[in-house]
Design a protein around this nucleic acid. Structure first.
Lengths: 154, 154
DNA sequence: TATTGTTATACTCTATAACTATA
DNA sequence: TATAGTTATAGAGTATAACAATA
């Protein structure tokens, strides 16, 4: 019935929304949001400034502020002064944070396995394809092709 | 670096968000939002009540209300009384709406082709995989696994 | 003058709850 | 008592703009 075959944007929207809902429900038991887990995971095992972390997680810097506020309140991460740039903050995961990442990863892997279980050969291709889209044609889109505020006229 | 390999939810979120941004930008010239196009497309070529249309587009009924309000204001669709159920409304696409769908479909096909162009063999598998996820394990999620309002405790 | 991070604000999407009118 | 649709409202996610401190 669709004139555009198939409706890729619809499929991505609905799978994304639905999977995020599952993740959120599963992580809620651990007191984590999906975004907090994402940031926690990317921050772990390396030194990252707040800004660098935002880039990796493809989040706006203001979104990163509130995300880190939450993680700090929960005692899972800390902002520490960068020794080389007094404007910047390094994000440090606490031992509690590291421990929780491990538990969360197990939970998430369970969700993924359950969801992806219905796929056969498509499983790898799906992941590969999405990765190539994120790193390729959909990479720079964030600040270019997006009509954000109504004030962004030009 | 990710403990869960790979981060499917992250990939879906970002591709979805980015592609929606592209679609919105492309459709803005036609005065359409991505969601309006989606509903318009699904409503065309068949008789659908408002509620049935919401199911097909995987939208909440309240979201459908505002979407149809916009489409009616733009003269692209009409709500007409159902002859068999006086509670229900049938959604009817106007000639202007039908014409616009055709133009929008061309625009969208262009975006898809451009974006999916980087994929080779994964292209079909990606679409097939997403479709199976939407129709399968991610289908009923909407009202089950989702922690919506904070009031939805049980 | 540019950049890191913050605050305040606002817009979009989505959904819950309460309601009307039918069934 | 249940369902179709509406209204009002609220929450999450995201982003713009203005700002402070530093580069």
């Amino acid at each position: 019935m669709s004139r555009v075959t198939p409706d890729l944007s619809f499929l991505l929207d609905k799978t994304s929304e639905s999977l995020t809902a599952r993740m959120s429900a599963a992580l809620a038991d651990l007191g984590l949001t999906a975004r907090q887990y994402c940031v926690l995971d990317k921050a772990s095992g390396g030194e990252h400034t707040q800004g660098r972390l935002a880039e990796e997680a493809l989040l706006d810097k203001t979104t990163m502020v509130t995300t880190l506020d939450g993680l700090e309140r929960a005692g899972l991460a800390r902002r520490v002064a960068s020794p080389t740039d007094r404007r910047a903050r390094l994000v440090e995961i606490t031992p509690e944070g590291e421990a929780l990442i491990e538990r969360a990863a197990t939970v998430i892997q369970g969700v993924y396995d359950e969801v992806l279980g219905v796929l056969g050969d498509e499983r790898d291709a799906l992941v590969t394809g999405l990765t190539r889209l994120v790193e390729g044609p959909l990479r720079e889109t964030a600040s270019d092709a997006r009509p954000r505020r109504s004030s962004r006229t030009g």
